[in-house]
Write a protein that binds this DNA or RNA. Structure first.
Lengths: 202, 202
DNA sequence: CTTAATTTTGACTATATGGTTAAACGTTAT
DNA sequence: ATAACGTTTAACCATATAGTCAAAATTAAG
């Protein structure tokens, strides 16, 4: 048995690229085969169908994001530090893969149930409980205003992710180039954190 | 000459539906023809090609949104009132057409230049100047914190639009049904406004 | 070296899709 | 009535694309 994983790997790399760029419907198996330097039939040999190939790629991507997010938010720091850390870390992570958020959003919209497979409900509810405890404690101590955990989380994600989803719109509204947009993102990592902190700080 | 505009209208209605749901690449002319109850060749008779048909549909949608937004933000009210109004009005408007934001985002990403045709640069810069003047005045009077107009605008749009773009994710994170999501949106209109106001209020 | 299993390829199929065309249909004006 | 014009249709074409298959090439085993 030839344990040469190169071919399978090559396919996955090329497929991730193509799916990220074109989405599921727009992606072409031929293009994936070409940029992997392989025959198209090989895609079917290793991964049965376009759907199956996509699922593998999507699972890989989704599990990365989720584990990154979950593991970094449960540290023992103040809410303010966590918010600053979130914007810095989250936006930096996405910066290297700017098409990812729109891709994920689209694929969740296309097949909402799929995300069930990758998000372990326990993880989410653990995260929520941890943060909820911390929030309530800081609310009681008069450090921050009353706010629901879910809303705080969603607001942070919105403000971070939307920069990338709507990048062309941002560039248009701000009238800037790609380079200036990169600069803008650096500034945003702190300004967004302060925006959120100001909102909940008493 | 038979001035029966029904056919053209039927096509546009069916096309808007299909394009909104499937995006440009996913949309099928046959399906548009079917749901309009017409022959597929008629689409080409009235609108030459899929591209042209899409452009007409997109222009219709885009001009609606933009005119709605621009006209309502330049009234003579305080920033706080404008923020409250924005979230109430903007989210209510999108509520009736929840697939619209993701559609617009996708099509801007697919063809960023197209939006040039619909956004008059003068309008945007007028809006910005008006708001900037108001912001600076209220900053000087010590009512609100220092913040750049562009960032405030983008933050508001992010927080409003993302609810709809990531609706499936929200439903998942919150563990709620469609009905409960509608309820959640009502609450969000005010909670988001207060979130932003708290952030800039001194 | 020979044989068996695995991997890779090129040529193929079936189907979907955007687009075309010529003829049929209907309406209006003369 | 009919000629002229705009509208609608069915049947077609070309192409792209996911997927198949049998044979060739490569690798592993005896």
């Amino acid at each position: 048995m030839k344990t040469d994983l190169q071919t399978e790997e090559k396919i996955l790399i090329a497929a991730e690229e193509e799916f990220l760029e074109q989405g599921f419907t727009g992606a072409r198996l031929q293009k994936i085969a070409d940029s992997a330097g392989l025959n198209k039939a090989l895609l079917h040999y290793y991964f049965r169908s376009k759907d199956r190939l996509f699922e593998v790629v999507f699972e890989k991507i989704a599990s990365q994001i989720i584990s990154q997010l979950l593991e970094k938010i449960t540290a023992e720091t103040t809410i303010f530090e966590k918010i600053r850390f979130f914007f810095d870390y989250h936006m930096s992570a996405i910066e290297n893969n700017q098409r990812l958020p729109l891709f994920v959003i689209n694929e969740i919209a296309r097949n909402p149930d799929r995300i069930f497979q990758f998000i372990k409900k326990d993880d989410v509810s653990d995260l929520r409980k941890t943060l909820e405890g911390q929030l309530n404690s800081e609310i009681e101590r008069g450090i921050i205003r009353q706010i629901a955990v879910e809303e705080l989380i969603l607001n942070c994600i919105s403000l971070s992710v939307f920069n990338f989803i709507a990048k062309p719109m941002y560039k248009q509204v701000l009238g800037i180039s790609n380079k200036e947009f990169a600069q803008f993102l650096i500034h945003r990592k702190t300004s967004l954190a302060e925006f959120v902190i100001n909102s909940i700080k008493i």
